[in-house]
Design a binder for these strands. Structure first.
Lengths: 142, 142
DNA sequence: GAAGTTTTTGATAATGTTTGCCGACACCAT
DNA sequence: ATGGTGTCGGCAAACATTATCAAAAACTTC
């Protein structure tokens, strides 16, 4: 199941002299089956339903692995905990967050990206990453 | 000295049945004299140089007051602590943060703002706030 | 301006997320 | 089996921020 992502993780693991373990596979599978934008705590609850012996620290450590192997992106909407979303075969996008129900809409606007580059180069600034978060009310909560 | 901002704070305080105190005035003055984008800890160090008896909790509480009275904006660049910048008589802007030296460049691009509105209304989304952070290297650190 | 009411203060404890630590454990090659 | 390396789980520690609470200050009313 979803062997492409597992292959990516195994490649990264082998390139860094790490080891493939039952726990890492479990966290990866739970992450892949999961809805997007999970927090570490949420993922921990999901994983321990299938395998109660997995520790919270292992979830954090594996999420770090997933981030470094480009399978996951780390998000921070400023509510005190980080979230993670699928990154493999997903293109860059920004987020609209409904502050009422928590729904997250992903979007991408090529011209916004382009003008960011423009503003940066006008200031002699080299972009390594950027994030645009829009907060408000979704159509159902308005 | 900068009586306009003090007046704004006093108005807010009176409208909410709060009280004007020596400590609140001290934190406000330190904030106003300070360079932009201060953290609570930094502001605490500045305030206690003039008035060593002021507690850290009071700085946090007063920063919350300043934020609610629209004198300050709360910023979160994802480095684990919040920062505060002047808001009174300052227009909205976004930030470019140099990950090497910490320098922050403020900018505003009307078209970026406009396209955000466009994307939001296309999704039936009502914007209450938004933030665009660009991370990278400034011209001196490149 | 004194008494009474309400809010604020400072010190410290508590919170909540994330990371560090450590002895036990799994895996692989010899 | 044995040794070596990396990982695990449980818990302690780190960190910024918030809650708690008795004492102090600020405002109100007379």
């Amino acid at each position: 199941m979803s062997s492409k992502e597992l292959q990516v993780l195994e490649d990264y693991i082998q390139q860094n002299n790490l080891k493939i373990t039952r726990q890492r596979r479990a966290v990866l599978n739970a992450f892949l089956e999961c809805e997007k934008h999970v927090s570490a705590e949420e993922l921990y609850r999901i994983v321990t339903q299938k395998d109660p012996k997995i520790g919270l620290a292992t979830v954090y450590r594996t999420l770090s692995l997933l981030t470094h192997s480009q399978l996951a992106s780390e998000l921070d909407f400023g509510d005190g905990q980080k979230r993670y979303e699928h990154r493999y075969m997903h293109s860059h996008h920004d987020h609209m967050i409904c502050t009422e129900c928590g729904k997250i809409i992903e979007f991408n606007h090529p011209l916004i990206e382009k003008f960011q580059e423009e503003v940066a180069s006008r200031n002699g600034f080299t972009i390594t990453s950027h994030k645009l978060d829009i907060f408000g009310l979704c159509s159902e909560c308005r």
